[in-house]
Every structure is written in structure tokens, then in C-alpha cells.
Computed example of a mutant assay.
Amino acid sequence: MAKKKNFPLRIDPTLYKVIESWANDEFRSVNSHIEYLLREQAKKAGRLPNKRDENGS
């Protein structure tokens, strides 16, 4: 598995509280919930390759 990239993220405190509450509802950390939300939007936008494409199949 590839190493994850770390980077600082500045976010509005109100939005952070919303994401924190949402993450708790989904039994995720804030970090993993942000990654989940970004991944889902990237898929929806057609910008994330399918697993099949990544494996060369």
C-alpha cells in the first residue's frame, strides 16, 4: 500500500465542528471522514480511476 501524503489543512471552525460531528456519527476519525468525502466526490466527478484501471485490467 502506498504511503499517505500529509499536509496541513486550514478549515473554518464551524465547518470543522460539522465534519467532526458527522464523522462521529459514522464512527470515523475526522481525518478519515474528510478523506472519505473527498474520495466520494472524486469518484462522482469521474476523476478517480476504477480499481480495475489501477490494476491494469
Rank of each mutant, 00 (worst) to 15 (best):
A2Y: 07
A2L: 11
K3T: 12
K3D: 09
K3I: 08
F7D: 05
P8L: 04
L9E: 03
L9Q: 02
R10L: 09
R10E: 02
D12P: 01
D12R: 03
T14M: 09
K17I: 06
K17F: 05
K17D: 15
K17T: 14
I19P: 01
E20L: 08
E20M: 07
E20W: 12
E20Q: 14
E20R: 08
W22C: 04
W22I: 00
A23S: 08
E26F: 14
E26A: 12
F27L: 13
F27M: 10
R28M: 15
R28L: 14
S29V: 04
S29R: 04
V30L: 10
N31P: 00
S32N: 13
H33V: 05
H33W: 03
E35V: 13
E35K: 13
E35P: 01
R39M: 11
E40F: 05
A42K: 05
K43Q: 14
K43G: 03
A45W: 10
A45Y: 09
G46A: 03
G46L: 07
G46N: 02
G46M: 07
G46R: 06
L48V: 03
P49M: 04
P49Y: 03
K51R: 09
K51C: 01
K51W: 10
K51D: 14
R52S: 12
R52K: 13
N55M: 13
G56R: 00
G56N: 02
G56F: 02
G56P: 00
S57N: 08
S57F: 00
S57P: 00
